[in-house]
Nucleic acid binder design. Sequence first.
DNA 1: CGTTATCTTGACCGTCGTCAAACAGGGTGG
DNA 2: CCACCCTGTTTGACGACGGTCAAGATAACG
Lengths: 251, 251
Amino acid sequence: MHDRQPLAALLRKLRQHAYLGERDADDLFALPVTTRSIAAGGHVIREGDRPTDCAVLLSGFTCRHKVTQDGARQIVAVQIPGDLIDVQHLYLDVADHNVQTLTQAEVAFVPRTAMQDLAARNPEIGRAINIGAAVEASIFREWVVNVGRRDGRGRIAHLLCEFALRMNAQGLSDGQAYDLPMTQEQIGDATGLTSVHVNRMVRSLEADGLITRDKRSVRFPDITALREVAGFNARYLHAGEQAISRRPLNA
Amino acid sequence: MHDRQPLAALLRKLRQHAYLGERDADDLFALPVTTRSIAAGGHVIREGDRPTDCAVLLSGFTCRHKVTQDGARQIVAVQIPGDLIDVQHLYLDVADHNVQTLTQAEVAFVPRTAMQDLAARNPEIGRAINIGAAVEASIFREWVVNVGRRDGRGRIAHLLCEFALRMNAQGLSDGQAYDLPMTQEQIGDATGLTSVHVNRMVRSLEADGLITRDKRSVRFPDITALREVAGFNARYLHAGEQAISRRPLNA
DNA sequence: CGTTATCTTGACCGTCGTCAAACAGGGTGG
DNA sequence: CCACCCTGTTTGACGACGGTCAAGATAACG
């Protein structure tokens, strides 16, 4: 019903973690929004910026990354449609990392103060935002584990499993396949590997029948086997746990 | 003046990011607190728990860690006195990782609901807590970079630099030295290395005059050189930035 | 249809893991 | 006070996972 609303994807995302009714949706859609289309590789936030707006990804894909002193890049998160690109700037003044588009993307900008006011005025939305931030922090922790303690195959398999679940939760995948918006070099930047080694491992996963590829689309005939290779445990995504516990309170 | 209060360390920590006056301090100290002393290696939170309390570290050191399917451990964060051990449980129902003491430690437990109520009742304290959570998320991002893109020497040097600043901010170090509460194996678990390789790198740092050691105490004669090796940029700690921007508003 | 980005493959090498053993320190108990 | 143990540190030999360099094959794109 709200699908024509620019922030419909954000509503869907927030509803993964809190129960938001029609009135909450109206509050959300009343936010002043500026939508911008950004080409692949474009910058949304640069380290050192003092953002005045809060960005929401509407379509396409973006990533957070940092560049070390000697020029190596590490992607620390990937956003899918509906994700709040800078929750942290509701609380922090200076950007500590970059956000860049992986594909052509639509990004909505909401003034920081408007978002802060809404969170204060509507506690359930404020809660939903904070839960989203807590879940993202949990994903960061899992990424530390991923690059710190899994081998190349496992890291890539884990990344694929995480996307599968997150895309699914946003209705962007049927659970069997999805379009992976990343080059092998970018996968390397996300897993702490080089593009050469990513290629070796991807081909190895493919040779073992754990994934099949067609252009940028990835398919997993046996997600259970892939999870096994990844050592994947979905708990860290906290899918749905809050939506259930809160629903009775204000439905 | 409040040094006899159990939560004095928390107040000091929150004041790093927000301006809190005497009334805010009184609100904080009015929280119902149970203090427990826990031996080194004791568990504070286990993955899968549904915590009813919010833990605050008063003295000693704790760490967050996860264990992979094949038994490898990855430490994803270390807490120093004043740190909120489970901010995330203000928003999430199930613990997605473990928290364990590194040393003998004093931990204060505040009922989750009491903490939530305080945050709602006193927005400045709520803000301070959320800023603290945002800074911790920023630290997680930097840790992903650390294990993903730095070599062994750099990872350990970076860890040492981070502690130096954080300990300093809490008044636990003079900026020249501090007691490192971790064994080399634990340093390995935090940096994604083995204890053997940690030893090699620590000795290498020592041989190059970047650090000196005496038991568990670490001293850095030339912090600038150490930062250079670490590729350390303190921005991600967001030290003081909010305290300054907010002070005029309600001082 | 040329140009560029991305993928793929091979050869070689270094960082770091593995395995194993020796060593130092601190605590306990006889 | 010393023997004993346990934990943590240190060192060496060896091997492997993954990095580096370089070239060729494909695919994307204007």
